[in-house]
Amino acid sequence: MRCQRCGGLITNSFTRINGTLLCENCARELKVDDMFKRQATFFEQAFPMLGELTNGIMGTPSDLDFGNSKIKCPRCGTSLRELDSKGMLGCIECYNTYNETILKNILKKQGSSDYIGRKPGEIANIEVSEIPEEASPAPSVKVEVTPVNDSKPESNSSISVLDKIKDADWSTIPDNEIEAGMKAAAQAEDYQLAAKLRDELKSRKEGN
């Protein structure tokens, strides 16, 4: 697997955002690795915020970042900026216009830029080769089975939680069940109940 941002091989762990695969470093650079674990310092938070603020007042950042933004494909008008942001070419001519950028991106994504497949109209001559026996050794791993439905009755769980909460005196129900109830109510589109439960939770937390 390769990172779709830097093209490096993903060795350790990866993050997937909206279908884009990122390596650990890129995920960290983009601050999407594990937002909840990250302890953002004051400075980390303050400067991006300031940046956003000034951008908001002074308009979008200057075109200086995109020195080549004025280059456009002569046939379809696709700009380099469009190519960078969408990753989509507009026409065959784009391959000539942006040859260098495309080549770089291809190398990042695919690790090779040489076409060695079949020619148009030809049939690929494919022979079925025997799969060597070595393949994967049987794993000597610890078996760990997690029962799925010991504590809750499958799909009816949300309904039963809701029923329980609707009928009960809330002061007798622990926080975690109230929270589960809130989620179940939201799922069942009973937003009134969900809002009440949210307020109940909030008041409990404030009370503590």
């Binding site: 994504k109 695919q110 690790g111 060695i116 079949r118 690929a124 393949a135």
Partner: peptide, 20 residues
């Protein structure tokens, strides 16, 4: 993932081996 630097034969061989 790969469509360059690979022939159809290699792709299918790789797929067969991986699936096996």
């Amino acid at each position: 993932v790969t469509t360059l630097g690979i022939t159809e034969q290699e792709l299918i061989d790789g797929a067969n081996r991986l699936v096996a």
